[in-house]
Nucleic acid binder design. Sequence first.
DNA 1: CCCAGATAGCTGTATGGTACAGGTATTTTT
DNA 2: AAAAATACCTGTACCATACAGCTATCTGGG
Lengths: 155, 155
Amino acid sequence: MSEDVHAAEVTLGRIETEVALLMRLGEATRRGTGTMEHRLLDRAAYVILRHLDAAGPQNVSALAARLNLDGSTVTRQVSALQRDGLISRTPDPADGRGTVISTTAAGLQRMAAVRAARTRLYGDILAAWPEADRETLADMLHRLNEALDARNRRR
Amino acid sequence: MSEDVHAAEVTLGRIETEVALLMRLGEATRRGTGTMEHRLLDRAAYVILRHLDAAGPQNVSALAARLNLDGSTVTRQVSALQRDGLISRTPDPADGRGTVISTTAAGLQRMAAVRAARTRLYGDILAAWPEADRETLADMLHRLNEALDARNRRR
DNA sequence: CCCAGATAGCTGTATGGTACAGGTATTTTT
DNA sequence: AAAAATACCTGTACCATACAGCTATCTGGG
């Protein structure tokens, strides 16, 4: 029984290590990939466009809550995106304080290009993996994200 | 056959999405966890201490290469760690230009405390997961990191 | 053996992403 | 209608990082 406890701790330690490593490697990969698609859209902008595409137009607060970001951060990101013509702001008809953020056609197109480039990148990185393993990876990552999100949202 | 290709692209897209999401969530979790263990050691410091612990004393260049960081970044991180008494610098006896970085007892202890806190955190996040799934997750993350690392190192 | 080039590390400077505090306009609650 | 809450924006600050340029040292071909 103490062996079970020990095994569980070892596994958690491994997960902790690998997530920390992935954060670093992901960052390094993102930087190193540059020059083509990375210059087109920085990470935050990409995530915002992805979310707008998936969940539809919404105001700054909703975006901030969903992305676990401070409202001021989203305000600035959105301003930059607007400057580049990738999103548009319109007053919220239902709330005079609010501003609804929507993607523009250019934003969607840019996002799709970056997404395609990133997908290609993963195809390269995982070239040697059988499809079944890739699916397992995708499933595990998805479940991990759900668990992380639930935990963040809980507090 | 075209179905296989399509399935593969869908999977890669999922992986791309989930990794991007994990980067954001991991960041949010790290920030949100704060106040206890996170203030003790920022992310870069933690990774450096982990690596020194695992791979032994080494100079700044070796650390930078291994962690995919610029030398100047490591220099600054190491300076901060030294200021806090968590690592020590000694001249490299075999190379007058070099400086060997080693963990101190305090550094190891701090690192272990942070590690324990983070492991506990993952235990919390993955509380509902059976051990077998956790092991699968750990395996998949490990293999993903290997693949990422290989790809980064290749260029 | 010596100098040219490489390397190790440090410092100056710049950028990006983020948070927090505070301000204003608007909505909701009482 | 006043008070409280909310939405957004702006000022400011911090951290992690990169790149360029500097000095000190090492190394290999003449």
